[in-house]
Design a protein around this nucleic acid. Structure first.
Lengths: 232, 232
DNA sequence: GAGGTGTGTGACGCGATTGTGACTGGTCTT
DNA sequence: AAGACCAGTCACAATCGCGTCACACACCTC
């Protein structure tokens, strides 16, 4: 079973316990001024308060990055206010991203699961599943609930690229670049046709429509974080 | 097309010209002791030599940070040797990072493109959590207590801008400018309609009303204890 | 070369989005 | 109490964005 180690500063540590969700075990630990209280194996996620009793959050952030035991951790800075300067400082101090507080259990799990899904699925290059959809990279074959989807080469590449970036709006430009079609230059509206054809192919195989249009922006492959969280 | 403006000190400036790579246009300029020779729009990247003919690199670095025209630039210090003390001094003087020279055109581009990609990735995963409200910039989606809010493009932009400046009264003019609608000129009363539509959308998703009207002034996104609670 | 498949593009039409003017009701001033 | 001022809301028209289709062209197969 996967183990995901979450470290938090501040009060949240007390109210969280180890538990299992979705085939993964989560452990929660406190993060003190001298680093993690306990050494662990596996991926680490750290949530660092902007203001700490003994130490500024930025300094904590830098220490995490400098310490080889924690240098690889994914660090999320917890801001109290949405100040652009603070955001910039946080990222510069080594944070990978940030949320604007207060930090709740939902916020933590939401964040970890969403980013986990995004990065983990991408690394399992051979075959990955997103809901009812299965994509087999080796066989160049996609299935919906076991039913094969008849896809043309370009449609498969499109589906693959969208599925590799779930829950993220990809502009038409992103998609053109992502499919490696920069040369010769492609009209952005052509992407609409690609998506239309892909949707029809999935539908023909009895599938739903995981591709959401975001007006005046692009397209997303939707797998809602709400679907991952039972308690909501 | 994206434009990336690169400023260099020292000799490199002569050998570089504007050119296009990877769908982006790069412009190269010299950085003199009095700052950039030319004013530009768009992101700026500065490469500062550790040793300069007229000026120490550290001092140049501080000047860049102090000058509002260049305060937002991404500053890379070019070191001759990999001395830890120098690196620390460079970062403390305001540099964002450093490379160990000599500086070649390839080094510059690699650096800029790599950092570009990383910050783009980070910005793409940005997410605010303001109490019950979640704004996911990657998915271009807002949620209230986990419940998706159905927003039209303009409403999303408005919510985003308000949430980026919480607890601050924004005039109708601020909002029009903040959404980038200076051209063609927009009637200020139109903002009232925007706000009305946004409020209704949040309410439809089961949310409260974090948008407070400030009579004869504008609107505020309220992040008070009351507004934070679901159904507040 | 004939037939078939895959793909990019322009055109068309529908529905969503959005700015605006008008009306309503509330609040403050005198 | 009357008037001035201000914000919420509605209906409507103009515009915009997207889905779709038919077609042209580039391949491949036999």
């Amino acid at each position: 079973m996967d183990v995901i180690n979450i470290f938090v500063t501040g009060d949240l540590g007390e109210s969280l316990e180890d538990f299992v969700h979705d085939q993964r075990r989560f452990t929660f630990d406190r993060l003190g001024p001298d680093g993690p209280v306990r050494l662990v194996e596996g991926p680490m996620w750290a949530f660092v308060d902007w203001v700490l009793p003994e130490l500024a959050g930025l300094e904590m952030c830098r220490r995490l990055r400098a310490d080889p035991r924690t240098a690889e951790a994914h660090v999320t800075m917890v801001l109290e206010e949405n100040d652009p300067d603070d955001r910039r400082r946080a990222l510069r101090a080594g944070a990978d991203d940030y949320v604007v507080g207060p930090l709740t259990r939902t916020a933590v799990l939401d964040r970890v699961l969403a980013l986990q899904a995004r990065t983990a699925e991408r690394q399992a290059t051979q075959r990955f599943e997103l809901g009812a959809l299965t994509i087999d990279m080796a066989a160049l074959q996609a299935r919906w609930a076991g039913q094969p989807i008849k896809l043309r080469p370009n449609e498969f590449r499109l589906l693959r690229f969208l599925a590799e970036n779930p829950n993220r709006v990809l502009t038409r430009e992103d998609l053109i670049n992502g499919l490696g079609k920069r040369q010769p230059p492609i009209d952005e509206r052509t992407v609409d046709v690609w998506v239309g054809r892909l949707r029809r192919a999935i539908k023909t195989a009895g599938g739903g429509n995981p591709l959401r249009t975001v007006r005046s922006a692009g397209y997303v492959f939707d797998i809602g974080p709400a679907a991952l969280l039972p308690h909501g």
